[in-house]
Amino acid sequence: MDLDVFVRAHSAEWARLEALLGRRRKLSGAEADELVALYQRAATHLSFVRSSAPDPQLVGRLTQLVARARSAVTGARRAGWRDAGRFLSAGFPAALYRSRHWWLPTALLSTALAAVIGWWIATHPEVQASIAAPDQLRELTRPGGQYETYYSSHAAASFAAQVWTNNAQVAAVCLVFGAFLGIPVLWVLFQNTLNLGIGLGLMSSVGRLDTFLGLILPHGLLELTAVFVAAGTGLRLGWTVIDPGPRPRRTALAEEGRSALGMAIGLAIVLFVSGVIEGFVTPSGLPTWARISIGIAAELAFLGYVYGPGRRAARRGETGDVEGPDRGARQPVVA
């Protein structure tokens, strides 16, 4: 294609579109129709230039022009409380429900692996010796030791904020790096599982498994579930790179990526709740049964959220993706 000829042939249309976009007064009906037609043609021109003669300067000019025209045609849209309410009541739970076939197996396999690691450490003194020196192990596992004082070593509010930040970072890593075929997600998941298994094994080896579970279950049920959801979502995103299904790979990655971004926002809220429990309930003077009951109630509320509103929203067609006007066109519209 002769790029100069193409530009000369269509520059008048682009100039007219720019003129219409620059009007400060309200467009007449005929001018509005003209703007839509010129926008459609410009989008087609942009697609043609990108595929046939990708001149960076021309592509940049047309991209900016098409974006301005699209905003004028579709109207500027601002997110508000209604969007947040829709996300929490439909988008987020639907995304959780749709991805359950990834995060539920992740949760079961990780928990089983942690239990196996804990059993192996508890029954093999030589493995315990490879983890730390005997005096360090005693300091970790004794009554009033580091495993117990960890949850009350800081003020509850600051500790809850620190825990929330750390867990949100773990979840974000799982979601962001899922596109790298899920390999970084597996490493983060293994590290999390290994730490849990070590705690189970060491406390079990001194006959204090009940104490450990009393400390970890109140907040850990919801916290670990959120991490498993993030890991499962990251693995799903990584699998999309390998097998996008019937969708074009770019479209599939865009849809799953936007859903993962929404998942990150929703999980931040879930992890905030678990952080509050860890900061205020876990180290509290409540009986163990009461603290564990609070953790179980939070976990059941989350699962009810997934299988109640989430299942209903998914059956209505919700996917967790942004609304149609915010997605962008999958392909240019031809006039």
Rank of each mutant, 00 (worst) to 15 (best):
A132H: 01
A133K: 09
R138D: 12
R138Y: 06
L140T: 06
R142T: 12
Q146K: 02
Q146C: 00
Q146G: 00
Y147K: 00
Y147S: 02
E148N: 08
Y151C: 03
A155V: 12
A156T: 10
S158L: 05
A160T: 02
V163D: 11
N167F: 06
N167T: 09
A168R: 09
Q169A: 07
A171Y: 04
C174L: 09
C174P: 14
L175P: 11
V176I: 15
G178L: 10
A179N: 04
F180L: 15
L181K: 07
G182D: 15
G182S: 05
I183G: 07
P184G: 13
L186D: 10
V188G: 04
V188Q: 15
L189P: 04
L189N: 08
T193W: 09
L200K: 06
L202V: 00
M203Y: 03
M203G: 00
M203C: 06
S205C: 06
V206K: 01
R208Y: 01
D210S: 11
D210C: 01
F212L: 08
G214F: 03
G214T: 01
L215Q: 14
L215Y: 15
L215G: 08
I216D: 15
I216V: 12
L217R: 11
P218N: 14
H219E: 15
E223Y: 09
L224T: 07
A226F: 05
A226R: 03
V227G: 09
F228D: 15
A231S: 14
T233W: 00
T233Y: 03
R236A: 03
L237P: 04
L237W: 08
T240Q: 07
V241Q: 08
V241S: 08
P244L: 05
P246Y: 06
P248T: 02
P248C: 07
